Simulated assay, not measured.
Amino acid sequence: MNSFGIADLVLFLGISQGVFLAITLSLLHNNNRPANRILSFMLMIASLMLVGRIFYPRFQDVLFFRIAGFVDTLIFVFGPMLYTYIRRLTFYESPNYKISKYHFIPAALHLCFFSWTLFYSSDDIKTMINNGDFNVIYFIVETSGLLSNILYVFLSYQLIRVYKIEEKNNLSYAQNVQTFLWFLLLGVSVFLILWIIGYANYFLRLRELRFISYHLIWISVPIFIYIVGFFSLRQPEIFRIPVVKKQKVQKERLDGKELEILKKGLEDLMVQKKIYLNNELTLKDLSEELNTSTNNVSWLLNNIHKCSFYDYVNTYRVQEFISKIQKGEHFQHTILALSLDSGFNSKSTFNKAFKMIKNDTPSNYIKKLNTT
Rank of each mutant, 00 (worst) to 15 (best):
L286Q: 02
K248M: 04
E208S: 14
I227C: 12
V243P: 02
H305E: 04
K246R: 14
D311P: 06
I227K: 13
F309H: 07
L216M: 10
F224A: 01
V243D: 00
S232W: 06
I197Y: 15
K251E: 04
L233G: 03
K263H: 01
V228N: 10
Q247E: 02
N296E: 14
T294G: 11
S189C: 15
E237N: 07
V271F: 12
L204F: 06
D311C: 06
I225D: 13
V177H: 01
W182N: 15
L216A: 12
T179I: 04
F183I: 05
N303I: 05
K284F: 01
E288C: 05
L266G: 08
G265F: 03
R234K: 15
L300E: 15
Q178R: 15
L233A: 07
L184C: 11
H305S: 08
T294F: 00
P222M: 10
F191G: 10
G229S: 06
F203T: 07
V271Q: 13
D268K: 11
L281M: 14
S308W: 13
V190S: 10
G187M: 09
L181N: 03
R205G: 02
K246T: 10
F230E: 15
K306H: 09
S213T: 15
I304P: 00
S213P: 07
E258T: 07
K264P: 00
R253V: 02
K284Y: 02
N278P: 02
N291R: 14
F183G: 03
L281F: 09
H305R: 15
D255Y: 06
Q235V: 01
K263S: 04
N302V: 07
F191V: 14
S213I: 05
I261Y: 07
H305Q: 09
L204R: 03
M270P: 03
P242R: 13
Y214T: 05
V271L: 14
R207I: 01
N296H: 09
Y214N: 06
I227G: 09
F180Q: 01
S232V: 04
N279D: 06
F231Y: 13
G229R: 08
F224E: 02
Y202Q: 05
F211S: 10
E258Y: 03
F191K: 05
Q250V: 12
V244W: 06
K274S: 13
S293E: 12
I197R: 00
L216C: 11
S287H: 02
S308A: 06
P222N: 06
L277H: 11
E237P: 01
L216K: 08
F231L: 10
L262E: 00
